[in-house]
Design a binder for these strands. Structure first.
Lengths: 165, 165
DNA sequence: AGGAAGTACTTGAATGTTGAAGTAAAAGCT
DNA sequence: AGCTTTTACTTCAACATTCAAGTACTTCCT
């Protein structure tokens, strides 16, 4: 059982693309964190949580739903929401119709925070990602990302909406 | 100074591509770690360090050089190399020609480890990234990644070799 | 109705990462 | 030569993240 088939090594083009992609997944999160920490004193993950609430009906979402949106586990989310609650941006309450469920709601202060923070963050995303790409590449990036996510997490909600790849 | 120009919001295509890319940078590292942890008991970062040494002349590289290769800071690298040293896969020595420099060398055990681990890891990379893509998309992925890295880290060594984008 | 099983989160200990300060060697300045 | 600065790394403390319980509520089964 220990005998391996000759592995299908990456060719030089693939190898280079792979190393570049690894560089991106190492550095892009750091770059996003740096901008948000600098300009707003929050991490990218915290931004995602606030953004996820801001676009939800009644600015409210259940924890597990938010965990799905932020691609994180409940444990991490719970701790981060605790911090956001201490800062006065989020409020937690128990769902009256099911006591197991925790609802997270964006406060007015939280709304103000994300509203102030979003424009600068969008600028950073443009500067780091979309401005350096052609329109065709931006479109390709979406398709490529969706295909990779399909392989990582086949039953994810990333393929649910939006038809063409 | 507080008056912002109307921000250039992302259009729906860009927004979707962006959310997908965020999902990839959140989940792909976790998926790589899971495979390597499962099959070899090491993290992706540790794999990168071993791989970086394995392809260097005399299986040896200075710490700051390795830090560049792994896109990390010296602090993190130093701690990880300490762990790898305790496991017997890497050996540290001081450069005889410059006492400030630390050289990390892959031991024979380290070479055996990376040699056993690489085929399974390459399979995982293929399964998660290249198999779901067309050849053209794989090529595009390289170009797109390079352009994004160019924006994140303009004076990086990612643009030095390899001409076309 | 009562107990077992499942769901939705929260918490706490172990581990990993980051950032600032520390050490040590080499280079530059006068 | 002696003193400052720079370079290359290491370490320590603060902080974040993960994993394995723990809690509380609901649903299922008999």
């Amino acid at each position: 059982m220990e005998r391996a088939e000759e592995p299908r090594w990456l060719n030089s083009e693939e190898r280079e693309a792979w190393l570049t992609l690894v560089a991106v997944i190492m550095k892009l999160p750091a770059a996003l964190d740096a901008q948000l920490q600098q300009d707003a004193g929050i991490s990218h993950f915290e931004y995602m949580v606030l953004a996820g609430l801001s676009e939800a009906p009644a600015r409210t979402r259940r924890m597990s739903d938010l965990a799905g949106f932020t691609e994180s586990g409940l444990s991490r989310l719970s701790q981060v929401v605790s911090r956001l609650e201490k800062r006065g941006w989020v409020h937690r309450s128990t769902d009256p119709s099911d006591g197991r469920i925790t609802l997270a709601t964006l406060t007015d202060e939280g709304w103000a925070k994300i509203t102030q923070t979003a424009p600068g963050h969008v600028e950073a995303v443009r500067a780091l990602v979309f401005d350096p790409l052609t329109k065709a590449q931006s479109r390709q990036l979406g398709s490529i990302g969706k295909r990779i996510m399909g392989a990582i997490d086949p039953e994810d909600r990333c393929l649910r909406e939006s038809a063409p790849l």
